[in-house]
Structure formats: structure tokens, C-alpha cells
């Protein structure tokens, strides 16, 4: 009997592990609840954050047009889960304008919780290098094009790095989502090099390569992408045509996340050069048939 129970328990655990998805995609009209559910499907925030840890979060919050910024409900849900997992410190690696939070009806309820977070104020566009806040990274192992990066120093000091992009159109790269969102960690000088240092100004291949190279610097521990209402033209700032897949998508594989989200908003992943460059860097998997994707 005991042996039987051990076998059953062992099988259950094995099945549970086997079912942990690579991508959790939750559809609905309540982005806050969808964010909680998406992370729950990945095993809960405790899979990513341990008590006492310091968590860095990067949010695409700088734009004002609807469909061009990460829904603040995604962010509020995330920081709630991170605090509940016992994090000692949450730092936004790019500052968030106080007005951003007011776009959420949840702001009054979570105002005190938001006030417990801090941010890297100096990393506000157009961020300028200072030794207090940024660090120079002359080269990145495995990088093809990028060099002399100027990155937010705390990226290397946090225990956990969570990326909260929005999957939307970008005039130069077609899609901006998980991988491209990391440009928010650079000074403006570094980002401008992505545009100007290639064989031609705004060379799409060069920019895509730089973005993929940038993703080699530090692996993102968790990605939660807003795919609820997003612009598919006029990006990155909008205004543009908005599509509404009504999804929040979570995972740890930036290539897979970008591939999946591109499809959700009607883009061809093959058109997104960043995906291929990221795949070549072994940052993740672009063949979604090889992954476990749970959709609700």
C-alpha cells in the first residue's frame, strides 16, 4: 500500500512538473486577474521570488496613447505578487511617472503598496550616463554587434529581474515586446548607437542584432506581456490601429514570448528580425510546437 501511495505521489509530482507551461496565456477582460492567473499557471510567483530578495522590474510605461503602454493593472498585479512572495525590495529600473498609475482604477486601492516601491529616477528618457547610476559594459560575451553599452547598474544588483512589456507595433523593428523592452535599461547614447552605428541608418538587421545582443547581458527571470489592447500601426508611440487579443502572456523564454505574442497581434514572427537573432543566440525557442503553451 505504501509503495502504491509513493508511486501515485511520485507520478503526481512528475505530471505536475511536466505540465508547467513554457507560456501561460490568459484571456479575459480583467487584466489584473489575468496577470495573477498567468503567473499562477507558471507555478506562482514563489517560483521566481524568494523571501528577502530584491526584485527589479522594467515596465514600458513611457507612452501615453492607449495601446502603446503596458496596462498598469499588469504592473500592480505583479508587484502585489512579488510582495506577497516576500520580496524585501522592488525597484523599477526605469522611473514611472505618477500619472501612469492613475490610468488604473486600482490605483487608490494599491496606492500604499505602490509607494513601497522605488525607482531609478535618473534612468528617465533621455538618460545620461553617470557613474552613480550606470555602468559601462564595453563588450558582451557572444554579442555580434553591440559594444560599449551603458546600462542601469542595479540590473546587476537585483536578485530577480521581471520584464513587463506590451506587445505592439514598432516602425523600425515591426514588433516591440520582451526583447526590445530591454532597451529601457540603456542610456540614450547606447540606444542611439543601435540606430546609427549600423551599415545604414536605422538598419533593421543591425538594430535587431543589437537588441538580441543586449538580451545576453542578463537573463530575464519572468516576462509578463500585456497583449490586451495594443497598437498594430503607428508604433511605438501611437496613435494607431488597435487590436484586442485581450490576453496577458507570461513565461521565461523571451524568444518564445515574442513569437507567441507576434502571432496574437497578427504579425508574422518571420517578419520580426529580433526573434531570429534571439534564437540564434540561444535565448529561447521560436518553434512554438516544441513548447507547452497553456491558454485559458
Amino acid at each position: 500500500m505504501k509503495i502504491f501511495l509513493f508511486v501515485v505521489l511520485g507520478l503526481s509530482l512528475g505530471l505536475a512538473n511536466a505540465q508547467t507551461p513554457d507560456i501561460a496565456s490568459v484571456k479575459g477582460e480583467d487584466v489584473f486577474a489575468q496577470t495573477l492567473r498567468a503567473v499562477e499557471l507558471l507555478g506562482g510567483m514563489q517560483q521566481f521570488v524568494e523571501p528577502g530578495q530584491k526584485v527589479g522590474i522594467l515596465v514600458n510605461s513611457a507612452f501615453r496613447e492607449k495601446g502603446a503602454y503596458t496596462d498598469p493593472d499588469v504592473v500592480i498585479a505583479t508587484i502585489r505578487m512579488v510582495f506577497e512572495a516576500g520580496a524585501s525590495d522592488i525597484v523599477f529600473l526605469q522611473p514611472i511617472d505618477p500619472e501612469y498609475w492613475t490610468r488604473s482604477s486600482l490605483e487608490p486601492e494599491y496606492r500604499d503598496m505602490i509607494a513601497r516601491t522605488r525607482e531609478i529616477k535618473e534612468n528617465k528618457f533621455p538618460a545620461v550616463f553617470s557613474e552613480e547610476v550606470f555602468v559601462k559594459v564595453p563588450s558582451v560575451e557572444g554579442a555580434v554587434s553591440v559594444k560599449d553599452l551603458e546600462l542601469v547598474k542595479e540590473l546587476f544588483e537585483v536578485d530577480v529581474f521581471i520584464n513587463l512589456p506590451i506587445a505592439k507595433h514598432h516602425g523600425t523593428t515591426v514588433l516591440t515586446n520582451s526583447m526590445k523592452n530591454l532597451m529601457g535599461l540603456n542610456t540614450r547614447t547606447s540606444n542611439v548607437k543601435f540606430h546609427l552605428d549600423g551599415p545604414a541608418r536605422n538598419d533593421p538587421e543591425f538594430i535587431a542584432q543589437c537588441i538580441a545582443d543586449l538580451n545576453l547581458v542578463r537573463k530575464v527571470d519572468l516576462i509578463i506581456s500585456d497583449v490586451s489592447h495594443v497598437i498594430v500601426t503607428g508604433g511605438p508611440g501611437g496613435p494607431g490601429e488597435i487590436v484586442s487579443p485581450l490576453r496577458v502572456v507570461a513565461g521565461t523564454d523571451p524568444v518564445a514570448i515574442d513569437t507567441y505574442c507576434a502571432q496574437q497581434i497578427g504579425f508574422l514572427p518571420e517578419d520580426v528580425l529580433t526573434i531570429e537573432k534571439g534564437y540564434q543566440h540561444k535565448l529561447g525557442e521560436k518553434d512554438l510546437s516544441k513548447l507547452i503553451i497553456v491558454e485559458e
Binding site: A62, P126, G171, V192, R201, P236, G237
Partner: peptide, 16 residues
């Protein structure tokens, strides 16, 4: 010129 990238956060390419 190219310094427009220091004013516009994404989308300077369009003006260029």
C-alpha cells in the same frame, strides 16, 4: 540632425 533621437523616445526614424 541625428540628435533628434535624444528628444523623441521611439519614432525619430519617421521624422528622418
Amino acid at each position: 540632425g541625428d540628435d533628434l533621437f535624444f528628444l523623441i523616445n521611439g519614432g525619430a526614424d519617421l521624422y528622418m
